[in-house]
Nucleic acid binder design. Structure first.
Length: 597
DNA sequence: AAAAAAG
């Protein structure tokens, strides 16, 4: 009873507000955010004539036939939100608040500016594809719009990071993109800026929908990520970038009450950030339609396309109502991009640019990697030793943050319990905990309240946790890519980090790739590990996913002339067709990427 | 074999 009444009220209120004295719009039309104040009154008086296109609308190659294919723009904006959102909370308001708590606790300033650009100076970059738009050196060179520029200043971003310098012009040029890149250095911004800017410009043609459920919303951009916490993080960042641009960002993920998310959606959504399960739910309830999607971004794209996720992603991207490749712009980001996954991913892309922002020798050098031989039964006491040592390294009375990865959820609980019993304040994050518990754990860790976090792979990717001094692989993962992502939780934004792994016979299959990785990162490889690696290379101890070039860094379209790709990982220049290889033969072997995302 | 993601 109460529910249906509330729903009714929630449903009709914005509709009335948006159109006041006219008949309710039945057909959606895209109104760029900067015109929405006017649009609300304009559409009321001009119901029968097509809505004016924004003056600076630029035709996008990929979309210029969308009008004929999908129907001409109509009146009425599907999101029923005429005008800027006056209730928009200033995400910068508590400048020293939430996100900065950790920094404050450590007596440091502004994590956002903490990027150490010197660490990036000589980062090798490879691009391939046809007519690759050239990189820029400053934000000023790109016309992102004044509102967005102001937010960039508020974020204290002074100049674009390497991934931004390359990815933003490519995306603004309307091209699809597969990028091997680093989050810590602004990966989220690299796909958010072009999306926000594009939405503000009203680029391309809106796609018409058949009238369906009145409460259906039509986001223009979709960002998918593999974990709830990562979606939250992306949402938080995207909200900063879109502040006062009129572009509305909404997040939807499982484990949280759906009603609140539905209410947020009903207030209007331009950019939807979501985890796959909850999005499918919303699509099946017809509360969200993907018909108007003009931008699709997959964060941690290789994870999104691996066995566990691929069917869901295919369903969302190929079997719902999303415009096909070419009629939308698609951006895939990850630090690791095995070529098998690249092949899968190419289904979603159209004439795309491949971009690899690699590590230079110095990038993963920021993370000191250690491997110790530890029997299962000795792991706990060994961890204890590390933590005792870590205690001495505390900053301002706070213990440095240590992130401990384990294999299983049960193992995580057990270890947390044991640590607490031994007076090490620890908490844990894994998929068997409630969402509330997960978020609490992460917050408590970030603030230094609980300086030890025991985690499963749920925390392996993308999470930006400042001040993680030490990553311990209590249990090593089976996949070297997961190792790369895990250790990338430390040594972020150009800062130094330490990663310690406990290795024993159970990890024999990882020996070779681990030894290779460490060698390429100029780390000291223990002799016993080298011997292990040599042994396992006989036994076929290769990683399941590849025989060689298993890291990102290389466009799989360029495979072919070389037996196993990777040894010519970096060509020198940018652009060039598929076949052109600069042939930098040095050092990168089977492809080390950044240890970051 | 495990983890993640809907309830």
């Amino acid at each position: 009873m109460l529910n249906s009444w509330a729903d009714l009220a929630a449903n009709s209120a914005p509709e009335n507000a948006g159109t006041s004295n006219s008949t309710a719009p039945s057909r959606p039309v895209y109104v760029p955010p900067h015109l929405r104040n006017r649009a609300a009154s304009a559409s009321a008086s001009a119901e029968s004539s097509p809505a004016p296109l924004p003056p600076n609308v630029s035709t996008n190659n990929n979309n210029n036939n969308a009008g004929s294919r999908w129907g001409a723009p109509r009146n009425g904006w599907g999101n029923r939100n005429g005008g800027w959102d006056r209730r928009e909370v200033n995400p910068f308001g508590d400048q020293e608040g939430a996100a900065e708590e950790g920094a404050a606790a450590f007596g440091e300033q502004q994590e956002n500016t903490g990027i150490n650009f010197d660490a990036y100076e000589d980062i090798p970059v490879e691009t391939s594809g046809e007519n690759v738009p050239p990189p820029v050196n400053t934000f000023a060179e790109i016309d992102l719009g004044e509102a967005l520029n102001q937010n960039i200043r508020r974020c204290k971003y002074v100049k674009p990071t390497p991934v931004q310098r390359h990815a933003i012009p490519i995306s603004l040029g309307g091209r699809d993109l597969m990028a091997c890149a680093q989050t810590g250095s602004g990966k989220t911004a690299a796909f958010c800026f072009p999306i926000i800017s594009g939405i503000m410009r009203g680029q391309g043609q809106p796609l018409q929908r058949p009238p369906r459920g009145v409460r259906t919303v039509y986001p223009l951009a979709l960002v998918l990520s593999p974990t709830r916490e990562l979606s939250m993080q992306i949402h938080d960042e995207a909200r900063k970038f879109s502040y006062q641009t009129g572009v509305r960002v909404v997040v939807a993920y499982g484990g949280a009450p759906i009603n609140q998310q539905l209410r947020e959606l009903e207030r209007g959504v331009d950019i939807l950030v979501a985890t796959p399960g909850r999005l499918v739910d919303l699509l099946e309830r017809a509360r969200v339609s993907l018909q108007m999607i003009r931008y699709l971004a997959l964060d941690e794209a290789d994870r999104m396309l691996d066995m566990g996720f691929e069917p869901q992603i295919r369903k969302i991207v190929e079997q719902m109502d999303m415009p096909p490749p070419g009629a939308r712009q698609t951006m895939l980001f990850s630090a690791t991009f095995p070529k098998e996954i690249q092949r899968l991913a190419s289904d979603f892309l159209s004439n795309y640019v491949f971009l690899a922002v690699g590590r230079v020798g110095s990038s993963t050098d920021l993370i000191v990697q250690r491997v110790e031989y530890v029997q299962e039964s000795d792991k706990r006491s060994h961890l204890m030793d590390l933590l005792h040592a870590q205690r001495a390294n505390g900053v301002q009375g706070k213990q440095a943050l240590t992130l401990v990865f384990v294999e299983t959820k049960k193992g995580a609980d057990a270890l947390e319990h044991w640590l607490c019993r031994n007076s090490f304040p620890a908490t844990t994050i894994h998929g068997d905990r409630t969402q509330q518990e997960r978020e609490l754990a992460l917050r408590s860790f970030k603030t230094g309240n609980t300086p030890i976090l025991v985690a499963t792979d749920v925390a392996a990717r993308g999470l930006d946790i400042p001040h993680v001094a030490h990553v311990v692989n209590f249990d090593l993962p089976n996949d070297i890519d997961d190792y790369v992502h895990r250790i990338g939780r430390t040594g972020r934004a150009g800062k130094k980090g330490l990663a310690t792994a406990f290795f024993n016979d159970n990890n024999a299959s990882l020996a070779r790739s681990l030894a290779d990785l460490m060698q390429e990162a100029n780390q000291e490889v223990p002799d016993w590990l080298s011997r292990y690696a040599a042994r396992s290379s006989y036994g076929g101890g290769r990683n399941r996913r590849s025989g060689g070039s298993r890291f990102g860094g290389r466009d799989f379209r360029r495979e072919g002339s070389f037996g196993r790709g990777g040894s010519d990982y970096y060509s020198t220049g940018n652009s060039g067709g598929y076949g052109s290889s600069g042939g930098y033969g040095g050092g990168y072997g089977p492809g080390v990427t950044s240890a970051w995302d």
